[in-house]
Design a protein around this nucleic acid. Structure first.
Lengths: 140, 140
DNA sequence: GTAATTGCAAATACTTTGCCACGTA
DNA sequence: TACGTGGCAAAGTATTTGCAATTAC
């Protein structure tokens, strides 16, 4: 539960107010340890009855702007959000059948190419998103 | 314009009918040579007045089912579609400012990891999607 | 006290479907 | 002819916003 305190501190340092909704949202994301959608978050135990979906939406937006979380594509119609923790990076393995999302454990092989792109193209604030799609054994 | 003929042939072999809408849709995707959204496609020169948006939608669905095109996430609210050509694979570089999408020219560094994942996890029909996000020089 | 944050409700955006007419094989 | 396709219009799902009330600092 230390990650939660650290993250709240990061938020405070960025000028965000410490509200119940903020704490519960971050706690939910940290506990789940996987990307979640707005709908999932708004319906989660800690947040239902706690606050409106619009609040969760705007909170996600604010946290995204401050680079506390990141919005992911992941192929679903709904957007996914994941906590950004310094020094951590995840690639994902997603089942096209049931939608299950796992983090890939192997080291990410893309950093070198990312460097190259930074140098050659002059793009700034570069980051990447890597997803593997396939049919999981259970769905096959 | 050979890619067009080849792709139409692939469609015919899969049992799809050769309609005006099919031809124009494929021609548009091939000419653009980049992922496009449903809205873009439906509004493109070759397809406006040619057919309804629902038709384009169902055509994209059919072509996706038959693995002629692939649906991409790419972070936008709208889904993107790109032509799948045997032996071709693209990673993308996307500006978070203006939304510009470029194909990355360097060879994709992910295939080895993809193999590993196939072996270790037993996932089938594995493929990946790799995107780099950043601020392009014009937006910086 | 004051500016950030929230709730509620309404508006958008994009996608998806029903039903019947039409065209390709 | 028969079944895949297409047009039009309506419904569905996810996101986004306006405004007044509330709350953290």
């Amino acid at each position: 539960m230390d990650a939660l305190k650290q993250t709240i501190t990061r938020c405070r340092n960025l000028g965000l107010r410490r509200t119940k909704a903020l704490e519960e949202l971050l706690a939910t994301l940290i506990e789940a340890d996987r990307p979640m959608t707005l709908a999932e978050l708004a319906a989660s135990k800690r947040l239902t009855d706690q606050c409106d979906k619009a609040t969760v939406y705007r909170l996600l937006q604010r946290l995204t702007d401050h680079a506390i979380i990141r919005r992911l594509g992941l192929h679903e119609r709904a957007a996914y959000f994941t906590l950004l923790q310094p020094g951590k990076h995840s690639d994902y393995l997603i089942c096209t059948g049931c939608g299950k999302i796992d983090a890939v454990k192997a080291p990410c092989p893309v950093h070198k190419l990312e460097e190259e792109i930074r140098e050659k193209t002059g793009y700034q604030n570069l980051y990447h998103e890597l997803e593997f799609f396939g049919t999981c054994p259970a769905c096959a």
